[in-house]
Nucleic acid binder design. Structure first.
Lengths: 206, 206
DNA sequence: CGCCGTCTATGACAGCCGTCATAGTAGCGG
DNA sequence: CCGCTACTATGACGGCTGTCATAGACGGCG
């Protein structure tokens, strides 16, 4: 999610990328269209050309991009792990945000979360886009879990738990200006996740 | 957090309450000062009288109120449970939002989360207020856990995990317009929490 | 050349925002 | 009655917002 990801792409893609980038910081409300074109170094006139649906369309596409991005990250995590475990995957997910928070100084949140907080009940389409983004994110996680011998019935539920926990911990970490919450949930939730490998019941594993 | 909590209180308190109420729906950016006084049925002129610090002060106080409110809820949960268990407390915390989402139709989020998303990097004081709110919320939860024989060393960490998970699941639930995520995390995380009772290590607790 | 679709440029618009200045009322002690 | 404090009322201000209207540039193509 660094700046070099914006190079070489079309102006249109850069605008979507920049929108997501800015939404992460100040929320949707504080992200103006003029800010987006400036950040993307794109011509202002292109806004109404590429996004005739206005800000709502731009936000929705930014949310969709974020969902695909998160899904891709999960895929790369799994591919890069020699001995994949649920706790390892979770630690990697947490680690991504830990790195960003320590690098930029807590300025970065999740654009999907921003869209939910700011638009969930004002824009039905954005709410749907956010749900789709979460689904796009949950899918690869659940698939990775089943590949690690987690029963299919629990994989999806655990994926939801992992993403919920990461989102919430990211919120707390931003508030505290410290990665403590992220580190804590990684440490506490990891063992539970590993306990689900090969188990059929809840935690009392067969 | 229903409307009757606003009755009998001073106009000033009603404004703080209304600010929190409105922030939960549309975020801080979409919450105008004029909307707040209208919702609180308070005189507009009182704004600059009670909140000379402007919107920032009002938001900060709303966040503080939300933190104290959440802490009070936890205390009441614990007091009302015949046989208190960590999973029972967590289920109660989740249940509060489940009820609200099903009642109002997913319109309600957490005002503290809204403040973090919208103001975390724009207003240092709001960021601090949000951190304080989370701390005020974490405290009673951790204390309740120690009262349930959870080792003191883990109680605080588990409280952070619980709150993170609830916040994140609430985010997902709002996006999906469904309480599924909340129900899922309650079901999946509950057993782990109970497993920490009397344990000293991680999950293998004897 | 002329035409056309894609893209860009720019200024204007109405509307809302938070804030401030100013004035006014109500109650109360003297 | 005055004076003082607490609170309310109201209109205005500059600034920013998303959106739109209009016009211009560029490049392929017949």
């Amino acid at each position: 999610m660094t700046a070099d990801e914006a190079d070489g792409r079309s102006p249109r893609e850069r605008m979507v990328f920049s929108a997501a980038q800015l939404m992460r910081r100040g929320g949707v409300g504080a992200t103006g269209m003029r800010d987006v074109v400036a950040h993307a170094r794109a011509p202002r006139g292109s806004l109404q050309h590429y996004f005739p649906g206005g800000k709502e369309q731009l936000v929705n596409e930014a949310v969709g991009w974020a969902g695909r991005y998160a899904a891709g990250r999960v895929a790369r995590f799994v591919a890069g792990m020699a001995e994949p475990t649920p706790s390892g995957l979770f630690a990697a997910m947490v680690g991504q945000w830990t790195d960003e928070l320590e690098a930029v100084g807590a300025a970065s949140g999740c654009p999907v979360a921003a869209a939910v907080v700011d638009c969930a009940d004002a824009s039905e389409s954005t709410r749907t886009a956010a749900a789709a983004a979460f689904a796009a994110w949950t899918g690869p996680v659940a698939r990775a879990l089943t590949d690690m011998n987690v029963p299919a019935a629990r994989a999806e539920a655990l994926a939801t738990l992992m993403i919920s926990t990461v989102e919430g911990a990211l919120l707390m970490a931003r508030a505290e200006g410290d990665v403590r919450a992220l580190a804590t949930v990684a440490r506490e939730l990891g063992p539970l996740l590993d306990g689900a490998v090969g188990a059929v019941g809840a935690v009392d594993g067969g």
